[in-house]
Design a protein around this nucleic acid. Structure first.
Lengths: 340, 340
DNA sequence: CTGAAAGCGCTTACAG
DNA sequence: CTGAAAGCGCTTACAG
């Protein structure tokens, strides 16, 4: 393997000069810099990552702790993961993908061995034991997902409460007065998936203020069960003119449900979902939706984390909670209710 | 941070003794071993990964090069990824998830910097430029996916040709004489997704031998487009009694397509798909299917790769091609054709 | 059964 | 603007 010594010899300078030339941490004469550049390319030199990490205490690796829980629609997870890996790379970081059952152990192992510079937590629940482990650790961390207790690490999430209000407001503005809201399965909530009730509670509260009726219910997270759930919900509430979906599986199933009932959106039913653009593409979903912003949230979490690692974000800066304002992408499934 | 020196001091021995005690590479007296164990636990010691990598030239990290291509149903990729990360961890390896556009550059960077011990390639195409880069690199590699040229690295894939024959055989045994085969989109084949035609060609050849008619066609990889494709295919071939699906999106769409046509499987139509058990669960698919064996393939590829890294698999052992025999999971969508 | 020391390949004060 | 040397935290021959 080619080391910094080989480059130094080839360029006729000392190893420290090569190091400085490559890092730019001190001025190097143009001639020497040029010779070093040439040698580097000729030999195909890249600094040994282990040696560099040992000398600098920086690995340029982030740990991504992903969890794949039952009753969660896995396809939606992939976008968060890709958002993180892509943005991390663009900032010069590689991503260690950690899917161990025992996230706490993984975290301790990676922290103590200094294998990573920071931690990114996905799928954070209301009471997440990984957070307790995180505060005892010397590396910084960000989460995507809002836990019950804040202030320990930087937190990023969609503002699900605002999303709930936005859904209701939009429907109300169009003249709808009776809505159905289909959430994720109740298991997800029970396990600590707070985003489910954050959206639902806010939607119901706003509806009450506006004199709108919202029938809130849960739906399965797998196909085709969720399709049957949707049929049942529509049977139960024949006068509802608007459908709100905080459940990716429901969104994926809806086109066929509508088709088989001879219904069209928005002529017969207005629909607002909550999922990502990528998801909409994969499932060719024609529904207006609040963007999950998986990509944006992943980017923001990585950005802050890297900021903490490099010192760009001061150690003194207290951990923050950033709730992304929801945006509604109109795909044409919204209109006034029929008969108005 | 706590180092091996801290443990040595605490246990009253030399650093080398601690190292040997932890690695088990030479006999240590029970008393001393006990003292060291205690010190390790008390201090929460884990060896510094960078230092260890520098000293041993082993990082215990594998690079997973995943590609997310257009016209490919992303949800199916996740299972391969999880198969790899889970099994790697069980063998003591972490997984660096690499999703860069330029896989060749990523490969070179990670190889030269010795950031990983080996490479795992996913979604390998017929002519994959990453393979050319791989042979010039000193770390071993495995692929999941069968490229056109073999012999450079260890290759693992489902035996798609055997899968095609198995599908036709099974249908023929049940008495079916006219089948429809829906493959992945033609773009996927054109780009080098050889598994598509490996299955299709073998199915057609076997059908010819048996006097069975197979209508082979392509279908979209997104929803709900594939649903319309399926309707069209069924309209075009009203006498076909068996449906073969080498297209995950098609499998996901089929329950609703059948439902809306008033058809049942297997009473009206026998169905064999090709996807993974996880996929079947997420989409609650009731169809008999040849298991993609994403998990098994991931495990096998990791296993061999780690074998090469540790020397368990000899350097002399030539790279192999392992095609996994297909297995059909019966979920009750197979029967004799109607009216027999 | 145990220890002192060299070495892995970098970076960075220190010195000029 | 450049170099010699110490040090990061391990492992592993070498010596006893």
């Amino acid at each position: 393997m080619v080391t910094i010594g080989d480059v130094a010899r080839e360029a006729g300078v000392s190893r420290s000069t090569v190091s400085y030339a490559l890092s730019g941490k001190r001025p190097i004469s143009p001639v020497v810099k040029e010779r070093i550049q040439t040698a580097v390319e000729e030999l195909g030199y890249t600094a040994n990552a282990g040696a560099k990490a040992l000398a600098t205490s920086r690995t340029h690796v982030l740990a991504l702790l992903a969890r794949f829980l039952d009753d969660e629609f896995a396809p939606a997870m992939l976008e968060y993961i890709l958002g993180v890996t892509d943005h991390a790379r663009s900032l010069g970081y590689d991503t260690l993908m950690v899917t161990e059952e025992d996230g706490v152990r993984a975290l301790q192992r990676l922290s103590r061995s200094r294998k990573v510079d920071g931690f990114l937590l996905l799928n954070v629940s209301e009471e997440d034991e990984r957070l307790d482990a995180l505060v005892k650790v010397s590396q910084p961390a960000s989460t995507v997902g809002l836990p019950g207790r804040t202030g320990d690490v930087d937190i990023f999430d969609l503002d699900f409460a605002a999303a709930g209000r936005l859904m209701v407001d939009r429907m109300h503005d169009l003249g709808h007065r009776e809505l159905v809201l289909v959430s994720q399965p109740e298991h997800v909530v029970a396990r600590g998936g707070a985003y489910v009730w954050r959206l639902a509670d806010a939607a119901c509260e706003r509806a009450t203020q506006l004199g709108v009726t919202v029938h809130a219910c849960f739906g399965s997270s797998s196909q085709p069960a969720i399709g049957e759930d949707l049929h049942e919900v529509l049977d139960t509430h024949p006068n509802a003119t608007g459908l709100l979906l905080n459940n990716e599986a429901a969104a994926a199933a809806l086109p066929n449900v509508l088709w088989s009932r001879g219904l069209r959106a928005p002529e017969d039913l207005s629909v607002i979902g909550r999922y990502s653009d990528d998801f909409a593409r994969t499932f060719s979903l024609p529904f207006s939706a609040i963007d999950s912003a998986a990509d944006e949230l992943g980017r923001a979490a990585v950005d802050r984390l890297v900021g903490r690692i490099t010192g760009r974000v001061s150690d003194e800066a207290p951990p923050g909670v950033e709730l992304l304002a929801p945006t509604l992408t109109d795909r044409g499934s919204l209109a006034a209710p029929p008969g108005r």
